[in-house]
Design a binder for these strands. Structure first.
Lengths: 339, 339
DNA sequence: CTGAAAGCGCTTACAG
DNA sequence: CTGAAAGCGCTTACAG
């Protein structure tokens, strides 16, 4: 049978309470006692019963990762980071997808959130886009008094968040293209509901403007982050006549950039000789496409890690409430200088 | 404050025990009482405290998905299926990666397993390849008396499993190629440690043999499921001289098949006119590659779903212990008939 | 068909 | 620095 705290107490010749103090690193225990109890605990392979502890403290040592319809690559990395942080703190991660596609109203969103959280008492919640921007969801969490950390939210609000500076990243990437001599730079926007869409576009716009060029609406096409939308968008851009056609296309994510490469190939344009292409995210597809994509590496794993980290230490040391993490421009073969 | 079972009992004018019976669908409650209690419970938005229930029953209502170093696509679908099944049964899924890369010895594997499970009392465990084939891991679970279901294990053993018939799928896919008139069919094998590798190869071999052809070792190249290994393997195959070179290549997964398409393009072969290509798994990459890949769709989501389903109903109705789920041959543009 | 008592394994005040 | 008591919110026998 699994050892209980009573077993440890008996064998160590102290009270249950003393064992509890040692195990929770509470003060007021003689060093000698502490060492002794620890030894016995290890010997008995004792580990506290989470249910019992949870009942007594009304903590669950569980963090929930809640998301709605995310990209698999994105969520996997967030999840992995969150799990690692949880493990370091003795917490565990439960994953709770919300199926919100059809639930447009505030009430429906709040309700879906409620029904998940009512059943599962978690100590904290990690929210990814677009959920992290839903007032209804945030309100529900607040009513329930459950801490949350938002990942890459649209607006900085009261709740803490971790994110990256999408605008600056897009700015730098556009500058990289400009430095290679490109002046006609196409841009494919992301999904209209996504926070990142506007920020990345803003970065593109300011780099173009700062270079003394003007942003031409012919060069900006709406996409929705899907490969298919990238196909349509790149056709629009590449069917422009010679001398007007962009010499470079900056897609708001890698899937759409992969589509640009594919369509360019079909239309007889060589990448990067005839057309430079870059993406955003640095997902695995960036390396599978040939030529490999120049893209922005997001600190996705780290965002998940930091979000969970913050939740597991919470109240005690509120070192950093919100933070932007570093990104990295990955230079690969899909961009070249203008001849 | 959150309502407790006592609140419900008081308001309904019955004992705690009666409420408990109603909530757990136990017999021996008057219909009238049952209806009344349910109404009150709903009114109070009551939901049981999992920690308390767990302490009393020594059940946690938690299922763990434990894996080591899997493909992101694979594990995401397993996970999603498992979560859906858990939700239907009032369970929750905790995800626990094991970092076993360096832990070669049986003891290390067992230890890693132990240290996760000691801290987290779960009611069941889902094991994916290659973990599900580790005797050390299975033994540890058995010692701890934790139920487990294996996903796509190498050998049918005592523990229940869900899987698909890789051999038959590869057999049918090879037959499809043969029917298109191909006789020189290359095969790229998967990672040596993976259960599926041998099975898929076996299916290829028997289809070739059944067609009265002989399996040529020149046509069989070792890969490891990675895109890179596919690049190397396909070069070997495609550098064979005219008249000897395969007219079709069957790669053991989609990543390697994507590599074949990419290398073929670079070497000036048109897919599917000069070379037919097919993969296995039907991951998203199968549709992104152009031409889209003919491949085998694995019931990955369903495997996760069934595995969790089995764990959440366990003891009571042991309807099916182990089962093979259906696969599907997805016909797309990467295969054509020999002219 | 219903209920009062005891207990699951911890922790939180409270004493000493 | 240490411990005895009470309680967290449920369920499992056991009575009736």
């Amino acid at each position: 049978m699994k050892a209980t705290i009573t077993d440890v107490a008996k064998k160590a010749g102290v009270s249950m309470k003393t064992v509890s103090r040692v195990l929770n690193n509470e003060p007021n225990v003689a060093d000698k006692t502490r060492v002794h109890v620890k030894a016995i605990a290890r010997e008995l392979r004792y580990s506290p019963n989470l249910a019992a502890r949870g009942l007594a403290t009304s903590k669950s040592y569980l963090i929930a990762l809640i998301y709605d319809n995310p990209s698999i690559n994105y969520i996997s990395h967030i999840q992995r980071g969150a799990i690692d942080a949880c493990r370091e703190a003795g917490y565990h991660l439960v994953v709770e997808p919300l199926y919100l596609e059809k639930a447009i109203s505030r009430e429906e969103k709040a309700d879906a959130m409620l029904s998940v959280l009512e059943k599962l008492p978690v100590d904290g919640v990690i929210l990814t886009p677009p959920l992290c921007d839903s007032q209804a969801v945030l309100q529900t969490l607040d009513d329930l008094r459950i801490d949350c950390v938002r990942v890459a939210p649209k607006k900085k609000g009261e709740q803490p968040f971790v994110g990256m500076d999408d605008e600056t990243a897009a700015f730098q990437m556009t500058q990289h293209l400009l430095k290679q001599g490109h002046e006609r730079i196409g841009f494919i926007k992301g999904h209209v509901n996504h926070a990142a869409t506007d920020l990345r576009y803003a970065g593109y716009v300011s780099a173009i403007s700062e270079a003394g060029l003007k942003v031409s609406s012919t060069f900006v096409v709406q996409g929705d982050f899907s490969f298919e939308s990238g196909v349509i968008a790149s056709r629009i851009l590449l069917e422009l006549p010679d001398g007007v056609r962009p010499t470079a296309i900056f897609a708001s994510n890698d899937d759409m950039a992969a589509a640009v490469v594919s369509v360019a190939g079909q239309m007889g344009f060589d990448v990067p000789c005839d057309l430079s292409v870059c993406g955003f995210d640095d997902t695995p597809i960036a390396r599978i496409v040939s030529p490999a994509l120049t893209t922005v590496r997001q600190p996705i794993y780290k965002m998940g890690y930091q979000a969970a980290k913050q939740l597991t230490q919470s109240s005690n040391d509120q070192t950093q409430i919100s933070q932007f993490l570093d990104f990295e421009i990955m230079i690969r073969a899909s961009v070249s200088a203008i001849a």
